[in-house]
């Protein structure tokens, strides 16, 4: 954990990193503030990877319990809190996908999802939709083959070797496409990074 700063302002005004610090000290309210800020985004991510809401909700629960127990593992120097939580969610979702814990829930999928697939409310909804639009725009700027390698690596958890096998492109080409995609995304998003995080 980075050096602590004294908490300032109300819970809703406190920056993410301070909240994580407080969670590490056993502050449950700080955990719920982070849950309020990120649970919808993280559930959306887990659902996209796993394909069903029931498993995604189990992952979300695991992620916040991990945050509760291991908040001291967060390193502010390495990433923002939202990125850290996103990477934990992605990793747990892909682990679950690989370990075949995902049982076919096709029968109840439609009903369950129509009942629970709601958007977050209020300002958070607007902000999240803005972020999503910006990200979609940035991804839309990528040539299809570059977008494909990044999405397969991030959302499907495929190794670059597997992507190469799947697409029939040499491994070097996959790596080049990944680099070009990341450079373009960085160029597209860099100016807006502070607003997005």
């Amino acid at each position: 954990m980075e050096p602590e700063k004294p908490p300032v302002g109300t819970l809703a005004e406190r920056p993410d990193a301070q909240l994580v610090c407080s969670v590490g000290e056993g502050d449950e309210e700080a955990l719920w503030e982070l849950y309020r800020r990120y649970s919808t985004m993280l559930l959306g991510l887990a659902r996209r990877i796993l394909g069903n809401t029931a498993d995604a909700e189990e992952v979300l629960q695991e992620v916040f319990l991990q945050l509760w127990k291991q908040a001291d593992r967060y390193r502010e120097r390495r990433s923002s809190v939202s990125t850290w939580l996103g990477l934990i969610t992605r990793s747990r979702s892909i682990d679950r996908l690989r370990s075949r814990k995902v049982v076919e829930r096709t029968a109840d999928r439609a009903g369950h999802e129509s009942a629970t697939h709601t958007s977050p409310e209020g300002g958070s909804n607007v902000l999240q939709n803005q972020r999503r639009e910006l990200l979609s725009e940035a991804l839309g700027c990528l040539p299809p083959e570059q977008r494909e390698v990044v999405e397969l690596a991030y959302f499907a958890g495929w190794t670059q070797r597997r992507i190469a096998e799947h697409t029939g492109a040499p491994l070097g080409t996959v790596k080049t496409r990944t680099l070009l995609a990341m450079k373009k995304l960085r160029t597209e998003l860099l100016d807006r990074m502070e607003d997005l995080l």
Partner: peptide, 12 residues
């Protein structure tokens, strides 16, 4: 990390 935001948000 921002790629996570391209998924449709869903309230738990």
């Amino acid at each position: 990390g921002l790629l996570a935001w391209s998924s449709r948000p869903q309230a738990p």
